Amino acid sequence: MHQRIAHIALVVKDYDEAIDFYTHKLDFTVIEDTKIDDLKRWVVIAPPGAKESSLLLAKAANENQGASIGNQTGGRVFLFLFTDNFWRDYDKMVRREIKFVRPPKKETYGMVAVFEDLYGNLWDLLEPNENNKGVLKTDHP
């Protein structure tokens, strides 16, 4: 049996502003953008090279959903963006005015810094060290 998490829903205020942020600031790719009806779209984005999972941008449909924008995990880091070159991506993100809320730090598992997306969701930018490269593996027996 092979299962995987295909999409993670990310509640956003507006499809187009979210697409603009993720594609221009983080270099994500739009995998699909399909109109469902006059208010709803199926928008899937992913970082370069991603094969296993992606983000489903879900526009808040009511006040309750809107209240979760930017705080889907109650203030904890929500998403983990793994990289094969921390400093390349960190420096590019700084130039693109991504707000880092915790500076780069060498941890036992690798190099990490915490940044905010356009709504304030917290992300780890993480390059695992040699002992933890296996967590990047996407092919499972």
Rank of each mutant, 00 (worst) to 15 (best):
H2G: 12
Q3W: 11
Q3G: 15
R4W: 06
I5H: 01
I5P: 00
I5M: 00
A6C: 11
A6D: 14
A9D: 12
A9R: 05
V11W: 06
V12C: 00
Y15K: 00
D16L: 10
E17V: 08
D20N: 13
H24R: 09
K25M: 01
L26N: 08
L26P: 01
D27F: 03
F28N: 07
T29E: 07
V30F: 01
I31Y: 08
E32H: 02
K35A: 15
K35L: 10
K35E: 15
I36D: 07
I36L: 15
D37S: 04
D37Q: 00
D38A: 13
K40N: 03
W42L: 08
W42C: 04
V44W: 01
A46M: 01
P47G: 03
P48A: 05
P48F: 07
A50W: 02
K51D: 07
S53C: 04
S54C: 13
L55F: 13
L56E: 04
L57Q: 03
K59F: 08
K59R: 11
A60R: 03
A61N: 13
A61L: 15
N62A: 06
N62D: 14
Q65D: 14
Q65I: 06
Q65V: 08
Q65P: 11
G66E: 15
G66K: 15
G66L: 13
S68H: 09
I69P: 13
T73V: 05
G74T: 04
G75A: 05
G75F: 04
R76E: 10
V77F: 05
F80W: 15
F80G: 07
F82R: 14
T83S: 12
T83G: 09
T83E: 09
D84A: 06
N85H: 05
R88S: 11
D89P: 05
D89Q: 06
Y90V: 03
R95Y: 10
R96T: 06
R96E: 10
E97V: 03
E97Q: 08
I98G: 04
V101D: 03
V101R: 05
V101G: 05
R102C: 12
R102E: 14
P103F: 08
K105C: 13
K106G: 12
E107S: 12
T108C: 11
T108W: 11
G110F: 03
V114A: 01
D117C: 03
L118D: 04
L118C: 02
L118S: 04
Y119P: 15
G120H: 01
L122C: 07
W123F: 07
D124V: 06
L125F: 01
L125E: 02
L125H: 07
E127M: 12
P128Y: 00
P128N: 03
E130V: 04
E130H: 07
E130L: 09
N131C: 03
K133F: 04
G134R: 11
L136A: 01
K137M: 14
K137N: 14
T138N: 12
D139F: 10
P141C: 06
P141K: 14
